[in-house]
Computed example of a mutant assay.
Amino acid sequence: MSTRTRILEAAAELLAESPIADVSTRAVCEAAGVGAPALYRQFGDKEGLLSAVVDYGFERYLATKRAAKPSADPVEDLRSGWNTHVAFALQNPSFYRLMYSPTVSGTPAAAVEAHRLLLDVLERCAAAGKLTVPPEVAAQMVMSANTGVALVLITRSELYAPDVSNRVRDAIHAAILVPDAETPAPKVTGAAAAALGAQLRQSPPATLTTNETALLQEWLTRLSS
C-alpha cells in the first residue's frame, strides 16, 4: 500500500469515528504511521487532505454505480440507483457528510461522473417514452432530492419515519415519469417529446443539418417541459 493510500485510509477511518466529520492532521499521521512532512508533501495542507478524502469517498460510491449492470427496465434502474445512494450514505455517514459539505471547495470529478451516470439512466427512460421532463431537469430533481434525503437520514434520523426515503423517491418519480396507468394528453405529449429528444441526441439524422438538429432539439425540450 502506498503512503498516499495509507494516509487516506487512516483519515477515512478517523472520519468514520468522528461525530463532526473532522480530523486533525496529527491524528492522521499517527494512525498512518507517517511524519507530518509526508502528509504535507502528498496533500499540501489539511484542506487538500480532506478534498482528497472526498474524492476517495466518491470513488467508493462510484464503485457501486459502475458495478451496476443496466437492466431492460430503465425505470427500475432509476429506482435502484436512488436506493443504493441512500444505502451508501447510511453505511458511510462521515464520508457522506464530508462529500457534500459546503466547506469543500470545487466539484470533485467523481461527483461529475455520478451526475453523468444518473443522466445516462434518465436518457434511457426518455428514449423509452417514460420521462415527462427533459433528462437534465429530471437529473437535477432526482439528485437534489436523493442527496437531501440521505443527509437528513444521517444527521436527523430521529425526526423521520423509516420509509421517508421511499416516499420521497416515489413522489419525485411520479413528478418526472409517465405512470403505468392511462396518462392525460399533456403528459403523454411531454413524454413523447422527451423520448424524441433523447433519440435525436443518440442518433442525429443525416438528413438534417447541425442547425436544423439543434433547432428541433430546442423545440422538443420546450414541449417536454
Results as ranks from 00 to 15, higher is better:
21 A>E: 07
22 D>E: 14
23 V>P: 09
23 V>H: 04
24 S>K: 10
25 T>E: 13
25 T>R: 11
25 T>F: 00
26 R>T: 15
26 R>N: 13
27 A>L: 05
30 E>F: 11
31 A>L: 14
31 A>H: 11
32 A>Y: 11
32 A>W: 10
34 V>L: 10
34 V>P: 09
35 G>F: 01
35 G>R: 11
36 A>H: 13
36 A>Q: 15
38 A>I: 07
38 A>G: 09
43 F>P: 02
45 D>F: 08
49 L>T: 02
52 A>E: 08
52 A>V: 00
53 V>H: 00
53 V>Q: 00
53 V>K: 03
54 V>S: 03
56 Y>C: 00
57 G>E: 04
57 G>V: 01
57 G>N: 12
58 F>V: 01
58 F>Q: 01
62 L>Q: 09
63 A>G: 06
63 A>H: 07
63 A>Y: 10
64 T>C: 01
64 T>N: 07
67 A>F: 09
70 P>T: 06
71 S>E: 09
71 S>P: 03
72 A>F: 06
73 D>A: 06
73 D>G: 11
74 P>K: 08
75 V>E: 13
76 E>M: 11
76 E>V: 14
77 D>Q: 04
77 D>H: 07
78 L>W: 03
78 L>N: 00
78 L>K: 05
79 R>T: 10
80 S>R: 13
80 S>A: 15
81 G>L: 11
81 G>N: 15
81 G>F: 12
82 W>P: 09
82 W>F: 14
83 N>P: 02
83 N>A: 15
84 T>V: 15
84 T>Y: 08
84 T>Q: 15
85 H>D: 12
85 H>C: 06
85 H>V: 05
86 V>N: 03
86 V>F: 05
86 V>M: 02
87 A>V: 04
90 L>I: 00
90 L>R: 10
91 Q>K: 14
92 N>E: 12
92 N>W: 01
93 P>N: 07
94 S>N: 12
96 Y>D: 04
96 Y>V: 05
97 R>N: 04
98 L>T: 00
99 M>T: 00
99 M>S: 00
100 Y>I: 01
101 S>N: 07
103 T>M: 08
103 T>S: 13
105 S>T: 12
108 P>V: 00
108 P>L: 06
110 A>I: 00
110 A>S: 13
111 A>P: 00
112 V>F: 06
113 E>L: 09
114 A>H: 12
114 A>L: 08
115 H>D: 13
115 H>W: 13
115 H>Q: 14
116 R>G: 11
118 L>T: 08
119 L>Y: 13
120 D>S: 12
120 D>V: 14
120 D>E: 15
121 V>K: 06
125 C>M: 04
125 C>R: 02
125 C>P: 04
126 A>P: 08
126 A>F: 07
127 A>I: 03
128 A>Y: 07
129 G>H: 05
131 L>T: 09
132 T>P: 05
132 T>L: 11
133 V>H: 01
134 P>M: 08
134 P>H: 11
135 P>C: 06
135 P>S: 13
135 P>H: 11
135 P>L: 07
135 P>G: 07
136 E>R: 15
